[in-house]
């Protein structure tokens, strides 16, 4: 119930060398397909990679709720030997940068239980809130993001409430730096989830996008490269889907065998951009005809930065 977008800059400057940052490019793409999802908008951005220091973003709400949430977050971090280097409130969220050398999965599961964790990574930062791409940008200054790649999502809330924490993208709970945006419905959700849960993974939501993220993260953890993980996902996941996945260095897509969910891609020497609709891609090149392509059903592909 949504629109998705992803972009990777192969060269500095971005689309047509126009010097548009990747944050602004994603805002433009999502604004182009906002009709697919007016309720909430989200971004997965890959900021400067500072190894050894983890970036965490939490949804904390406002007023007393926010103060209570922060107290819990600090206690949990302290309990796990993570020290806070930097802390920054933004909208209804707080971003923390912490020194932490332990097991990321253990820390993030503990944080998930304590608070509403939105993303974890050496460079991943997920920003999502209710409202349009421009509404979210007004609060979180997504336009200032100058990195090499990122994903975006607009959501039409149908089955769950309009809440910032129910917005997309989703991160792979327990794994750093993996994010997903997905349009569709995974029908063997519970079967796949139980399979992963038996292997010790925890799920924070009942959302099928989170399942895809954890499924792929598990593959990557066990040594599969992203391209092969996507190939296997087409066999393993049942249902209708068009999704985009990103890691610190790559973005990729996979599309189900029934070609039910839309996806259009555009690639040149400067960028690769993928979106639900061409109207988003045209936003990157106003007034210019583009040589776009609809990926065939049952296909996948990845790009390195």
């Amino acid at each position: 119930m949504c629109g998705i977008a992803g972009i990777l800059y192969k060269k500095k400057g971005g689309p047509g060398g126009r010097n548009v940052g990747a944050g602004q490019a994603l805002i433009d793409m999502l604004d182009g397909c906002q009709h697919r999802g007016p309720d909430s908008t989200g971004f997965a951005l890959y900021r400067e990679d500072t190894s050894g220091i983890l970036r965490l973003r939490f949804f904390i709400g406002e007023g007393p709720e926010a103060i209570a949430a922060k107290t819990t977050i600090h206690k949990t971090l302290a309990d796990h030997g993570a020290t806070v280097v930097e802390e920054h409130d933004e909208g209804t969220t707080v971003t923390l940068r912490v020194n932490y050398g332990g097991d990321i999965q253990e820390l993030s599961y503990a944080l998930e239980h304590a608070a509403k964790l939105m993303s974890v990574g050496a460079s991943l930062d997920i920003i999502k809130d209710i409202g349009t791409a421009h509404d979210v940008d007004d609060i979180y200054a997504v336009r200032d993001f100058q990195g090499t790649h990122g994903l975006g999502h607009v959501r039409l809330a149908t089955e769950s409430d309009v809440k910032p924490e129910a917005a997309h993208p989703f991160w792979a709970t327990g794994f750093s730096d993996i994010a997903i945006v997905h349009n569709g419905q995974i029908t063997n959700y519970w079967k796949m989830r139980r399979r992963l849960e038996r292997r010790g993974y925890q799920f924070h939501t009942d959302n099928d996008s989170e399942l895809i993220a954890v499924y792929l993260a598990d593959k990557l953890k066990t040594g599969t490269v992203l391209n092969d993980a996507l190939k296997e996902s087409i066999d393993d996941l049942d249902g209708t889907f068009s999704f985009l996945v990103s890691t610190k260095d790559e973005i990729g897509y996979a599309k189900d065998r029934l070609a039910v969910k839309p996806m259009v891609k555009y690639e040149d020497d400067d960028i690769i951009a993928i979106a639900s609709e061409e109207v988003s891609l045209n936003r990157l090149f106003p007034g210019q005809p583009l040589n776009t392509m609809e990926p065939p059903p049952g296909t996948f592909q990845t790009w390195h930065r």
């Binding site: 119930m1 697919r36 039409l156 149908t158 349009n183 419905q185 039910v260 969910k261």
Partner: peptide, 11 residues
């Protein structure tokens, strides 16, 4: 094929 397509169809 979904609520998102339906929006565009109604329009």
């Amino acid at each position: 094929l979904g609520a998102d397509d339906l929006v565009i169809k109604i329009e």
